[in-house]
């Protein structure tokens, strides 16, 4: 619970960037608390196998890796609270964080709120999520064994989702608004070879057809304008990510896509406030770059606190 205690550092978000900031801060002797709304890991917690995080040569599932990072930070004295942050005053001294578990105060704040799947923005999308509409093939794919699914998107995650689903579902239809994939070459050959995979190029999803659950999608051909109804049991939306920064509007500098402007130092437009991981402007969003940000933020916060603010 909150109180009048002033932490040296509060980390908002318990993903890999957040818990690494907490680990480094705690080891540097800073009084550190992580606020997490649900469970450690963020997006990583839903990743079945992380194969590119060095040191785990056989891969590791994201939930387990997240728990390890949490326990490691806690071993050195960092605290965790399951709290949803409702409002922050990041210019105040000390900084104020109002949450579902009370109000917290800190001299520095590390923002590690991450990103989530971008939505198509179609009517019914939210209500149908879990009832045919999904954003994570590794999480929900098994429910569509031998059924028909549509995948929307043309990047690496759409390609990976389509491939994974082609091994589970009866039929996979990949819908992309261009006439070629943006996905890395490594995906092309296996996609072309998958016998139950059909491509619908230059097409967009314009309507979700449903009763209680999804029954199909309406597609529009961007060249001809022709519309078709495609019956399906599942729709996997894989059109990129969007940062969780709606709370930051008016307080922090954001880029045109809503990411918090911060360079490699992780320093934001406000002193004593740092942005780490997927929520920051950066060229590559991976677990390994998020943890690097976390370490840097803790170092910068340490310097800031040493200046005696």
């Amino acid at each position: 619970m909150g109180g009048s205690h002033i932490y040296d550092m509060i980390v908002v978000g318990g993903g890999p960037g957040g818990y690494t900031a907490a680990l480094y801060a705690a080891r540097a002797g800073l009084d550190t608390l992580v606020l997490e709304k649900l469970s450690a890991g963020g997006q990583m917690a839903l990743t079945e196998a992380i194969e590119n995080y060095p040191g785990f040569e056989d891969g590791i599932d994201g939930f387990t890796l997240a728990e390890k990072m949490q326990r490691q930070a806690e071993r050195f004295g960092a605290g965790s609270e399951y709290a949803q942050v409702e409002r922050m005053d990041l210019s105040a001294s000390p900084k104020v964080l109002e949450t579902s578990e009370g109000t917290f105060y800190a001299r520095t704040v590390v923002l590690a709120t991450g990103a989530g799947p971008r939505q198509l923005g179609l009517p019914g999308e939210a209500a149908l999520t879990g009832r045919g509409v999904a954003y994570c093939a590794a999480c929900d794919g098994m429910r569509y064994k031998d059924r028909t699914v549509v995948v929307v998107g043309g990047g690496n995650s759409a390609a990976a989702d389509a491939l994974l689903l082609s091994r589970i579902a009866g039929k996979v239809i990949l819908v992309h608004r261009r006439d070629t994939l943006r996905a890395t070459k490594v995906y092309h050959a296996p996609l072309m070879q998958a016998e139950n995979l059909e491509f619908r190029w230059n097409s967009t999803v314009t309507e979700l057809l449903h009763g209680d659950a999804l029954t199909g999608v309406r597609l529009k051909d961007r060249n001809t304008g022709a519309e078709t109804e495609v019956p399906c049991d599942g729709l996997f939306i894989s059109i990129g990510r969007t940062p969780a920064t709606e709370w930051a509007a008016g307080q922090l500098e954001l880029d045109q896509n809503g990411y918090i402007r911060a360079d490699e130092t992780t320093k934001t437009s406000l002193p004593g406030v740092y942005a780490v991981g997927d929520v920051r402007t950066k060229p590559l969003r991976q677990v390994v770059t998020a943890v690097a940000d976390g370490a840097t933020a803790a170092h910068m916060a340490e310097e800031y606190l040493a200046e005696g603010v």
């Binding site: 450690a40 079945e48 939930f63 399951y82 098994m142």
Partner: peptide, 15 residues
């Protein structure tokens, strides 16, 4: 056991 979203709410549910 196979449900990722279920695992994720586990710690908060316990709390």
């Amino acid at each position: 056991p196979w449900c990722g979203y279920c695992r994720r709410i586990g710690p908060a549910f316990e709390k």
